[in-house]
């Protein structure tokens, strides 16, 4: 029996080193795979048309060879046609639209979420648990079920009109339907529930109103969660694709994702200008990455918590 314990220390060490090498190799290869699309996107955006169509492709380029013409070309004004006078890729217009939509939606979502989470966490009322269960149930429903009816609703509300849609109409159509999130309510309710009941009773005894208690006690205590919700929610507008495309009647009302796809392919020749396409992709990706690196800890903590608790 005891002989199974007799250890060959050298063999063990060699095995350990080998497995460590494998481990790092695995992690580094995964990291490179994750980074490759970013690298390829940036590298391609810095190539000239000739370089981009070189076979085999260039994998490394000295900084001195980098060209920013793809970027500057994006802002060259279109000479003729429907979009005459606009930049080829109206990045700043799309950016502005996206940021405005993101801010309005986030404010709206935060307000409805905080109020509802408070009601579900602190107030006793008839039907609370059933209502909450129903809300959770809606998370299972794919959004595609809503979209066409919502389009008709928006149409009926007068926010969609091919001939005379205003910027305000578009903003309303893009934001109002998205000002609720059951998931965030669930998430914030958990945080609210952890705040001890005693605080609430103490406040009641002092004659504090519910609303004041929410503002002065609950929100400050739950602020980290609320900030996480704000950050996560404001990233949403960047990926929104189908609804903004559906609802905006004019090119200048679209959001970044929409502007991106479809542009850069010459409809008459079918040729795609990959350099410009990649430059535009970089521009669209950059704001998100900047936001991420500014709030890295909060975003990662928020996302991981949302994953674990759900």
């Amino acid at each position: 029996m005891a002989d199974i314990y007799v250890s060959n220390v050298k063999a063990y060490k060699a095995k350990k080193i080998a497995s460590n090498v494998l481990l790092y190799a695995f992690l580094v290869i995964v990291a490179l795979t994750i980074l490759l699309p970013f690298y390829w996107m940036i590298l391609s955006s810095l190539k000239s048309t000739v370089q981009i169509e070189q076979v085999p492709p260039i994998l490394l380029m000295a900084p001195s060879d980098w060209k920013i013409t793809n970027y500057t070309d994006l802002f060259v004004l279109v000479q003729s046609g429907q979009r005459a006078g606009e930049p080829l890729f109206p990045f700043f217009t799309y950016m502005k639209n996206t940021v405005v939509v993101s801010i309005i939606t986030t404010i709206g979502t935060t307000i409805t979420t905080v109020l509802a989470a408070f009601a579900f966490a602190r107030l006793n009322f008839k039907g609370r648990d059933i209502l909450f269960a129903i809300l959770l149930g809606t998370m299972m429903v794919p959004g595609e079920i809503f979209i066409l009816t919502n389009f008709v609703t928006v149409y009926r509300l007068g926010w969609y009109s091919i001939s005379n849609q205003t910027y305000l109409d578009v903003l309303l159509a893009m934001t109002i339907p998205f000002m609720t999130s059951v998931f965030y309510i669930f998430y914030l309710r958990q945080t609210f529930k952890q705040i001890p009941n005693e605080l609430y009773y103490a406040a009641k005894v002092d004659g504090t109103t519910d609303f004041k208690y929410l503002l002065k006690v609950m929100i400050p205590i739950a602020l980290p969660t609320i900030i996480t919700i704000i950050i996560l929610n404001s990233m949403g507008a960047w990926s929104a694709y189908i609804w903004p495309a559906l609802i905006s009647c004019k090119d200048e009302y679209r959001l970044v994702s929409n502007g991106l796809r479809g542009a850069f392919t010459d409809t008459s020749t079918g040729r795609t200008d990959y350099g410009q396409q990649m430059a535009a992709s970089v521009l669209v990706t950059l704001p998100l990455l900047i936001l991420f690196f500014a709030f890295r800890k909060q975003i990662m903590r928020g996302v991981s918590r949302s994953g674990i608790k759900g």
Partner: peptide
Amino acid sequence: TIYFLPYVTNTIAIGMAFAFMFHEDY
């Protein structure tokens, strides 16, 4: 942090980057 990057990208933009990565010649 590296592994998290795909989470903070625009699916369309990164999809286009993939499209070009998969380009037969370039």
